[in-house]
Design a protein around this nucleic acid. Structure first.
Lengths: 208, 208
DNA sequence: TACTCGCTAGAGCGATCAATCTAGCGAGGT
DNA sequence: ACCTCGCTAGATTGATCGCTCTAGCGAGTA
């Protein structure tokens, strides 16, 4: 029934890193939150705090990656999905009193220049999000792989930056503005993609 | 000749907070870097680390705010200015080995939920950037106050988020993609604004 | 010469940090 | 019954944290 010690440590770490960042989260705090014995930490994670952090970041990344299909699979088109995505983020931010935004952004900035292990873990998460978003936009939006990748990167960047502004200002305005910017870009990309598809459903480019 | 102790403390703090964030920067490290006597810290800043951090954030904010006119005043039009801005950020990021991005973003995320004093200082900086960018886009791009504010917020958000991705991935691709997204939005906004201006240079809206 | 006071100077406080250490529990194998 | 070993358990280490404390320097005033 109860999850094992290792899982509890990682779950607690993921939650604490998301809310406090890396440097503000202590190993003692993690084991207290996880109701885990302190001595078990360095048995399961001989690499210490960095190994815990890297593993926790990956777990958070996989969890949040599921939000992409969860939102966009129930959406009429790409731009609407983008708007739902940003609106949902804004709503969650308000509900958590502007505490829960991106689970790894703070950690990514803190550790980008100080821990190669942590930096790589964060980069891997971002890459998985980009891959998942790109595939979604290709299959559901009819975008080319290049367009899908660029629009996904832009969407994630706009979301991350809007989180920074929103948490500092305690306002969802940045999320609304950034979301609309990306949604309008998605409208143009999708109309271009669908036009190309409907014009030449299964042929190479041969028009002049 | 030599700047006074208080100024040296703030300059050193601004540099350290930009590169390491708030929690990773110690007061001892600040006075060492500033070549300042430790005892002077709590004479000049009785509020302790938070007061130093808040003042340093504001100083960094004013310094970086000057980049907006410095770039956009020498640019042919708004979209070109946006591209120069993001390209310059990307170049600086590469030159500093992906260490120097936004001077306050890391601090903003770290302290948003733990120190009201720090959060307000960061929010004030972001607001001053938004005000400066909005005014620039109104005067140079012919945008309405509302459009200028929204485009500025979007630009800052895209830049901040692209920094997060770029530092984690050690790649300027996010800056290129996000910059292009904002530049294209600026193209549409400027063409709309200029069309409106040339159509009705000094009259109220009376068209149907 | 006395006195004030803004500032320098750094020793030292208690608390907390990440990490190491030894000790022992307890299920599975023989 | 006995042993093994994955795991629990927490005391302890040395370093560092933000901060407080007293002492004294040195320019300005009387």
């Amino acid at each position: 029934m109860a999850t094992d010690t290792r899982t509890r440590i990682l779950d607690a770490s993921a939650a604490l890193l998301a809310r406090q960042g890396y440097n503000a989260t202590g190993v003692k705090q993690i084991v207290t939150e996880a109701k885990a014995p302190f001595g078990s930490v360095y048995h399961h994670f001989p690499g210490g705090k960095q190994e815990i952090g890297a593993a926790a970041v990956v777990i958070s990344g996989k969890l949040y990656e599921q939000l992409i299909p969860a939102v966009f699979d129930n959406t009429p088109d790409l731009p609407t999905g983008v708007r739902w995505f940003f609106n949902g983020a804004a709503q969650h931010l308000v509900e958590t009193d502007f505490a829960d935004a991106c689970p790894i952004a703070t950690v990514a900035l803190e550790t980008a220049s100080t821990s190669e292990q942590m930096r790589e873990a964060c980069a891997a998460v971002f890459n998985s999000w980009i891959a998942a978003g790109s595939e979604m936009q290709q299959t559901r939006g009819g975008l080319s792989p290049e367009s899908a990748r660029r629009l996904t990167i832009a969407m994630i960047a706009a979301l991350e930056g809007a989180f920074v502004l929103a948490r500092a200002q305690r306002s969802v305005e940045p999320l609304e503005v950034a979301g609309e910017l990306v949604a309008e870009a998605a409208e143009r990309e999708q109309s271009l993609g669908q036009r190309a598809v409907s014009r030449a459903p299964a042929s190479d480019e041969t028009s002049g």
